[in-house]
Amino acid sequence: MNSTSKSKHLWNLFWKLANPKVFMGWSGRWLPWLSWLTVLLLGSGLIWGFFFTPDDIRQGSTVKIIYLHVPAALMAINGYLLMFIGSLMWLIRRQHVSVLAAKAAAPVGMTMTLIALATGAIWGQPMWGTYWVWDPRLTSFLIMFLFYAGYIALWAAIDDDDTAADLTSVLALVGSVFALLSRYAVLFWNQGLHQGTTVSLTDGTKQENISNVFFLPLLLAMVGFGLLFLTLLLIGTRTELRMRRLKVLEVRERMQ
């Protein structure tokens, strides 16, 4: 009983954040802490992973790129998901914070996609003997990159802010359906070289496919990337909100 009232309280808090003023106050308070935590976790995860883990028997030291590759790929997908949710919330509840969060998530997610692709290519060269193969996973990420690019370009092209917010949200919703469809189409198209998912948090009961020595720093790096994403998202959303405020002030000044 207590837990339901608590979750209700959290839910209310969540919706309150959709108010620009509440959001600015809250994010302003938490951002410094979040930034330091990001530096700490991401830094320690990457340093641990790069310098204090043994080389893999088969893959040698090249395996260490996993500490960038896997978390970036994870955040690339999460960024897309966030863009979708933010757009959906905007179309339903008309609260600007959600659509501006979606707008801020796009460039971060796109960069993460690029990191995942680049590290994948660098890893692929010693492993598969080539930088690029048209493997389903790689292809899907490349297509996701294009979807991100389209979304960002549409935002940039439309002058009126609310029109841009509405149209990009419609694109994000329809785009997500087609992105999902592309994923299945690509699987159908080529079965691929890429190894299966290395890290799975839900399949804990199954036999471990990655040993703890590698897994713990990887987990740390993943949490670190998650925090990095959140930090960048908050900074981006705050910037967008400030830009909108600036516009309102400019309109006012012109009227006086």
């Binding site: 108010n19 620009p20 600007h96 909100l241 909108r244 516009k247 309102v248 309109v251 006012r252």
Partner: peptide
């Protein structure tokens, strides 16, 4: 003059 349809009014 001060009327604006912007939802950011409250955030000022």
């Amino acid at each position: 003059l001060n009327m604006s349809s912007s939802a950011f009014e409250e955030a000022l």
